[in-house]
Amino acid sequence: MSNGKLLIINGPGLSDLSELNETVHDGLSLADVKQKCIKTCEGFGLEVDFRQNDDESELLSGLINDINNFDAFIINPAGFAESSFIDYEAFSTAINKITNQSKPVIEVRIENIFKPDISRPLRGVESGGVGFVSGLGQYGYVLAIQSINKKLSNK
């Protein structure tokens, strides 16, 4: 039990998971992912705010405004990973701010982004002390929550 506050942010495009590779997607919706996350967090006594936004600047300002209000972060940058240089720089700066506070951050990708048939560039979270989970479908979020719970419990 860690009783921490976790922010889960999902980037542009994740409102519709039907575009994903079928073996990973398998009828999965973002609402399913959200339910899975809430249930997993409840089991650990973690408070969770699960967000998705197709608007990059809203997503970014939400993250920046809330850095001090949460103890740990899970980020699926999705379309953000391919976004404009300026947004990406601001995004990286926000991630650096989190890691400088020694708060856990884990990048989660639903698909294995390294599969040749998917080929999405890794341009998401690239600063120090950041975990990375890719290809585990909704269970990637579960793994990240387990890891965050352990890290917060050890503090």
Partner: peptide, 18 residues
Amino acid sequence: SSAVDSVVAGLGADGYSH
């Protein structure tokens, strides 16, 4: 990475048991 189903990195030694 391209030969496996999933990739897990940067979770420390606890990554194994997770």
